[in-house]
Every structure is written in structure tokens, then in C-alpha cells.
């Protein structure tokens, strides 16, 4: 069976959290979910690697969490509403996390938003990003 093509995979810079990613990222997301409890946040901060042993993630997923590779976590099945809890645990505002995902400084990102945000023109299809390179 060949893998079905998904129309939304053609949107650039976007990892749609569908059933496949949800299955793949179950333990990343459950780890993030555990951070809703203050005592778990404290335990995680005290020893991140040890705390992560409780969640059977792949080595790649674990590495992306420890290195705070925000896009990689999404690509490996993390969902933004879950990974945002890791950002909050780190004391980051959501906008700081968003800036990191876009490769901008927080100042640059905040300015882009104040100027009306990222324009959809040129950002609808993957081919538009490839042409820019």
C-alpha cells in the first residue's frame, strides 16, 4: 500500500497534527501533559533526563525535548498545545516559543505581528517557499 498524499502536507512550514502524528507523538504529548502539575514541573526541572525516563519516547523525540527543538518536536508528533506547556515550564512566553519556531528573534517576531502578521501571500504552498531559496 502506498502512503496516501495529504493535501495539507503542501502547506509550507506546517506540521498538521493528524492521527498519524498523534500516534507517533503520544509519549511526547503525555510528557508535556504531565507538566500541568506543579510537583511534576519541579521534578522535571531538578533532573530532566531522569524525569523523561518515565515516558517511552524514541531517542530522537527525547533528544528534541532535551534540546528544546520546538519544530522537531512537532515534526515527531508533538502538538503545539502540549509543547507550549514545556515552554511555560521553562518560563517562556508563548510568543518567545513562536519566535524560536520561525527562526526570528522575539523582537523581530513581535514586530512582524504588530505590522499585521505574516502575509499569506507567498506562504500558501510549499513550492512558494522552495522558489524563495
Amino acid at each position: 500500500m502506498t502512503k496516501a498524499t495529504k493535501e495539507y502536507d503542501n502547506i509550507p512550514g506546517t506540521f498538521v497534527f493528524d492521527a498519524e502524528r498523534s500516534r507517533q507523538g503520544y509519549h511526547i504529548n503525555m510528557f508535556c501533559m504531565s507538566l500541568l502539575k506543579a510537583e511534576n514541573r519541579a521534578e522535571f526541572k531538578a533532573n530532566e533526563a531522569k524525569y523523561l525516563d518515565k515516558f517511552p519516547m524514541t531517542a530522537e523525540q527525547r533528544d528534541s525535548v532535551l534540546k528544546r527543538q520546538w519544530n522537531r518536536m512537532l515534526e515527531l508528533g508533538g502538538n503545539i498545545y502540549f509543547t507550549a506547556k514545556l515552554g511555560a515550564t521553562d518560563g517562556l512566553s508563548f510568543q518567545q516559543v513562536a519566535a524560536m519556531m520561525t527562526g526570528k528573534t522575539q523582537e523581530e517576531y513581535a514586530k512582524m505581528m504588530l505590522d499585521g502578521g505574516r502575509n499569506p501571500d507567498g506562504n500558501r504552498y510549499k513550492s512558494e517557499w522552495e522558489n524563495k531559496k
Binding site: P12, F15, F17, T102
Partner: peptide, 17 residues
Amino acid sequence: MSHQISGPRAGLINSHF
């Protein structure tokens, strides 16, 4: 309304939409 908060395309806003 319009917003993308995940991935490299985060920050997208479409006032026209």
C-alpha cells in the same frame, strides 16, 4: 480568528479572510 502558532509559518494572519 486567523492565526498559526506552530512551526516555521507561525505568525500568519489573514485579515482579508
